[in-house]
Design a protein around this nucleic acid. Structure first.
Lengths: 153, 153
DNA sequence: CCACATTAGATTGTGCACAATTAAATTGTG
DNA sequence: CACAATTTAATTGTGCACAATCTAATGTGG
């Protein structure tokens, strides 16, 4: 499955950035097919994962966790609202803040979509511990890039 | 820089998909800032990398290499054309085929952008061999996902 | 209390991704 | 040769990403 390789011949294959780019898109493909019956996209699914974990959340909190700004989240949340999975409400303490909650339908999705992680894992075709260690390496890389990008602005 | 981690607390951090998603976007950020003076985006830069490697290329060839379809490439190439970096021409042998060539300006960019890989590597803040081995692992993962996705359609 | 800066979210505009459709050219087959 | 199937790009439509801008609400110093 995961095997050692020699030095790649193609320029793109020598670029870590392209490996990540291609890996992300291949993964999104797997989610696309799995989530299609619910009319959900991969980023929408991630928002639901966040809300299943803890609720309610503000737009800013979701943005911090997913590293997305309101320009992405606002329309995404309004689509989730149109699908009937979340509800938006202005906070009563601070009218600037918008609170996101799951609807009953959205909460029920947690059980309905419980098979998704397993389905995706099967698509990946690699053992769980290997996926976790790769995730850990990639996460460390991301932290390094974010620090490196920030340092020489 | 790249360190061992314990089991993550956040749901998202336990998901390889999100690690890849975040890594890709962090990397794109680094390219965005580096390429900004030339008005280039990251996918546009990848197309130029391909053309610097071998020229001319057809739209289909570029699509095969970058795993992008004409819906993405057609407008992207027309923007590169508008920037004066590539030229499009219908093939004389087969009028369905569109041939992409670098303009003189586009070819000159190869030298002008020669610093980019180093700049990005500096942003990443990890040694070259580590980047290469991570790229290799990620590439193997992608191949596995693509196979896994294809198998149970 | 009143400018003034700050914050939260929405909006606008550009550029990918990608599914689905279309149009034109080519190929294969009878 | 005729004509259906295939191939190549382009186009259309939806949904992210993200920079930049805007509006409304809050906070703060004077």
């Amino acid at each position: 499955m995961i095997a050692k390789e020699k030095v790649p011949e193609r320029a793109l294959d020598r670029m870590l950035c392209f490996s990540l780019y291609a890996a992300h898109r291949a993964t999104t493909q797997a989610y696309r097919r799995t989530l299609k019956p619910w009319g959900l996209t991969y980023p929408q699914y991630l928002v639901l994962v966040e809300l299943w974990e803890r609720e309610p959340r503000t737009v800013t909190e979701l943005g911090d966790d997913l590293v997305l700004d309101s320009g992405t989240l606002s329309p995404l949340l309004s689509r989730l609202e149109a699908l009937g999975f979340v509800a938006r409400a202005r906070s009563s303490e601070d009218a600037r803040v918008v609170t996101i909650r799951l609807t009953d339908r959205g909460a029920a999705l947690r059980e309905e979509l419980a098979h998704v992680p397993g389905e995706i894992a099967r698509c990946m075709g690699i053992p769980l511990d290997m996926a976790q260690s790769l995730a850990s390496e990639v996460r460390a890389y991301t932290a390094s890039v974010q620090a490196g990008s920030a340092s020489h602005v």
